[in-house]
């Protein structure tokens, strides 16, 4: 489906994209962004679902089950933690800042 040269293009462009996203980030967002990227690789859940979905033997089902379990933990946990962290950057705090300066 995605093979050879096309795959290399995707790998390369995705690599540049990641580099580009991080290179201009203020320090205060490093932790939220690390947490956010931690959430994004939770997409592994999709692969895990696929692996379990096409499992044929009990062994494959067991390992696939573990994969989905862990993948779901990564995706959901990553989201919750990131969301909680970013909640602190809400606009009402900006207002406080304005009043004081």
């Amino acid at each position: 489906m995605i093979e050879g040269l096309a795959a290399i293009y995707i790998f390369m462009l995705a690599g540049f994209t990641g580099y580009e996203i991080i290179s201009k980030v203020p320090v205060i967002l490093h932790t939220p962004l690390m947490s956010g990227s931690n959430f994004v690789h939770g997409i592994v859940l999709v692969g895990a679902m696929f692996a379990l979905g096409i499992a044929e033997t009990t062994t494959q089902q067991v390992i696939g089950f573990i994969a989905v379990l862990l993948g779901a933990g990564n995706a959901v946990g990553g989201y919750v933690v990131t969301e909680r962290m970013l909640e602190m950057f809400n606009p009402s705090k900006e207002k406080t800042k304005g009043e004081e300066s």
């Binding site: 995705a14 690599g15 994209t17 990641g18 996203i21 931690n38 690789h41």
Partner: peptide
Amino acid sequence: AGIVVGSA
């Protein structure tokens, strides 16, 4: 998604 996170 994986490679973006990998490089970032």
